[in-house]
Design a protein around this nucleic acid. Sequence first.
RNA 1: GCCGGGUUAGCUCAGUUGGCAGAGCACCGCUCUUGUAAAGCGGAUGUCGCCGGUUCGAUUCCGGCACCCGGCUCCA
Length: 641
Amino acid sequence: MITVSLPDGTPLELDDGATGLDAARAIGARLAEAAVAVVVDGNERDLTRELPDGATLSVITKDSEPGRHVLRHSAAHIMAQAVLDLFDGATFAIGPAIEDGFYYDFDIGRAFTPEDVERVEIRMAEIVAEDQPFERAEISKSEALELFADHPFKMEIIESVEESEGAAGDAVSLYKNLEFVDLCRGPHLSSTGRLPAFKLLRTAGAYWRGDENRPQLQRIYGTAWESRKAQSDYLDRLEEARKRDHRKLGAELDLFSFPSELGSGLAVWHPKGALVRTIMEDYSRRTHLSHGYEIVVTPHIARSHLWETSGHLEFYAEAMYPPMELDDGDEYLLKPMNCPFHILIYQSRSRSYRELPLRFFELGTVYRYERSGVIHGLLRARGFTQDDAHIFCLESDLADELKSLLEFVLMVWSDFGFEEVEADLSTKPEKYVGRDDLWEKATEALRDAVEETSIPYAVAEGEGAFYGPKIDIHVRDAIGRRWQVGTLQVDFAQPENFALEFTSSNNTRERPVMIHRALMGSIERFFAILIEHYAGALPGWLSPVQATIVPVADRHVEYANEVAAGLRGAGLRVEVDDHDDTVGEKIRKAITMKHPAVLVVGDDDVDVDTAGFRLRGAEERRGMALAEIVDELVQFCKPPR
RNA sequence: GCCGGGUUAGCUCAGUUGGCAGAGCACCGCUCUUGUAAAGCGGAUGUCGCCGGUUCGAUUCCGGCACCCGGCUCCA
């Protein structure tokens, strides 16, 4: 007999040679049914492996994230098996489980067609139906190299396997079902038949090891779940995300468009979109003015010399539009960032320690020549406007400035309806300017600041900007997606490049520290996130149209216009729908266009100053007094500050 | 930039052996005068993304380019 201990400390006695599955059975039949693997002394193991005496044991069930990870990983193996079955000369590279699914990278000498993917899916279903057991084995690296001699990507993996990833010492672990063998650390389902639900979703080219200088493989993405229900819920969530797509809603709600005549990544803002954007920008100016910022305005182009001084030409040139050359040989460049301009304002006269920190704010429109494949609606455009500011301060002010900045960020996000904020602390990248000790100091200042707030953060090694480390702010939207928005960057390098100075209290010349920061990030991107977060139904204060007035018949149009005038007098944005449609149709249109309020006016209302009132999320109320409607609507549409 | 898939009416999309281009919604007109998520009838609508090639003839086949979509890489 052996004894293992369960997570709550309960001992469990089992026969010698008992497996994880035996243990799960001993606990309960339902647990055994749901089990996909076990954790033995902190390591994930197959259900079919023997348990050592005295181990601590917990069971991984298929409806947990680690459990889904196991079944997705097994699904990836089954897909590789199907592809190797179906395509002569196919070789395979790497196939992990990922969030919500899995992929596998192959080389079949060409791309997969949609028909290929269908065949692969059918073959996978056959493999699942055959219920082939997954068997684990360990062999030496040299044996493995021989076994995978026809699969160069596998050989490269074998050569780079660390002890921590494979089995002990020189050995690597394999999983085998029928004649299909893959290198894998496991664990796996005990057999292919235990994969409850899967679906292949899309194909894509993907560089081997993520390196664009290495061969491009063909990737197939799929998803797999613990049940058909869980899978269809997931597919519904994908559908929900598609419905919220800001590019789709932007067209439907007549907010903006991307005329191809302009070129890729350049938007035009239609009246309703421009109105929302203006409201956002007004909010931004207002809050910056009340937070000690001064508004500045700078041009869109500057001589190339400026960008040499700033280091952009050396470090950022590939993301900049090519220069415009003038007759006298001078070159001008479109700005990808606002910082050099704000520095020039700083430099326009001598500065005293008494005026620091100096905070220059600009809704600065920048242009970045993004690689063609990355453009994605307003989320990734080539022209966009940052709520950008540069703070020039003493090194000793840095901590306080960063801390108050983070508070500012939280305020902005909460005002726009986002409560979940996270941060990434990005450290020194490979290509950088500036002294190492300054980088170190700046990184620590950022770390201290974020640790003083309630914002959870993670470190992103090597992800900093070329001129300094940064904190990137992320928010979660209504359906749990994480978006990168604002950024706070400490910069010791630009003050050096531009030889910035101020006169200290001791009458010495000192160098200020610079903070680059954007809270919304880009107005375009932020707008897109708002649209997706609210699925187009913006809060009252941001809605381009806050109320639609629907006259029941033509004879009510005059009264409708009077009601509209009253609402406008209270500062509300109102439309009267006097089209030749039925009442139902006009209401449907107003709701489809996400207008928060609909007022219906007819015979019963004209003489008594009432309307039928339907506010988003509430029941309709007939015969409501106009004064009451105005009060409620003004309250509903009140800006956060 | 790379891999793959696309581009037909304002929108969503049909359209095969290459032979004068279609539906629904939207739009316009008429009728209806309406009380809370689609009234009825009628009508107009296209350089079939752009440029070139093959062909008697190209929306259809071939090449180049632009733009879009999904990934990779990159990133606000």
